[in-house]
Design a protein around this nucleic acid. Sequence first.
DNA 1: AAAATATCGTCACAAATGCAACTAAATTGA
DNA 2: TCAATTTAGTTGCATTTGTGACGATATTTT
Lengths: 161, 161
Amino acid sequence: MTNKVVDRIPLILEEFTPYRLNKAAETISRRFSSQYREQYGLTRPEWRTLATLGQFGAQTATAIGLHSSMHKTKVSRAVFSLEQRRWLKRRRDEADRRTEHLELTAAGLKAYEHLAKLAYDFEADLFARLGEHGTRDLKAGLTALETYYGQYAAVTSTDDD
Amino acid sequence: MTNKVVDRIPLILEEFTPYRLNKAAETISRRFSSQYREQYGLTRPEWRTLATLGQFGAQTATAIGLHSSMHKTKVSRAVFSLEQRRWLKRRRDEADRRTEHLELTAAGLKAYEHLAKLAYDFEADLFARLGEHGTRDLKAGLTALETYYGQYAAVTSTDDD
DNA sequence: AAAATATCGTCACAAATGCAACTAAATTGA
DNA sequence: TCAATTTAGTTGCATTTGTGACGATATTTT
């Protein structure tokens, strides 16, 4: 049962889809993250937190984590760090005092807008380089993956741009 | 020059390609890595090292890193760990004594063959779930990405399968 | 053939991460 | 109404990672 013919075929790492996907994600992320890292010294969790608040306005830490697929400790640390920069402020919810609503300050919003612009430009440049077909394939492939794993319980949570 | 109309469009994180790509890669990797983690307690760098040696036979640490996109310290640690398990042995190159050739032992080869089989099955299952179109799109999208960034100097090196 | 430079692999240290335990507050339910 | 459970967010600790420096060897330059 174990020794089929297929056992003999060697595994070619650079053709193995999980490996390819990981490498592609890392390469692209690295390129993009260098922008916010070099210009603002932001980490990825910080960038994601900023992006989520910029997109939705005030949010709780839990909501940020859910939306941006980050573990709550990452969110907690990112929030702390953005608070130090005076890019966001906390507001305790008086109805449920466990919760705090997080909101960008004017400075935070300004940084967000700049970074959102960089993100757009980055993506536009990527699409231009991939070409029409490459872009369509990539998007469709990602959509297929999302459909697939979206059906399974979103058990885990982690990070990364 | 900075305030175009496009500046007003909010960035939608879950539609942003680098984010989607990262999340997809993480989700898939997590599923796959749970197999070698649970069954053998292997880390990702260890799995990649094993896979590279299984694919090519004896290799130097540097070659493994190049092939599997891992930083040399990761390779060094993975090699040490696999050596502890007696899954590989080192052989000093007498012509160039800085280098060592790494080779799987019988036990290492056996583990490799089992894991390669798991990898195949995992990929086959993924493709089945993605469907014919989803699979083709994903592969084509990855190929497009690889073509794109393959042209740029492979400056960095890291990990993660 | 010496000196300068580059490469191989390892190690020490600092930063980032994940996990589990924790405090505080809210909710459930007996 | 009060004990048990759940939820929000933080913190401590152990593990993993990246960086830079290092010793050893090889190669290149002068």
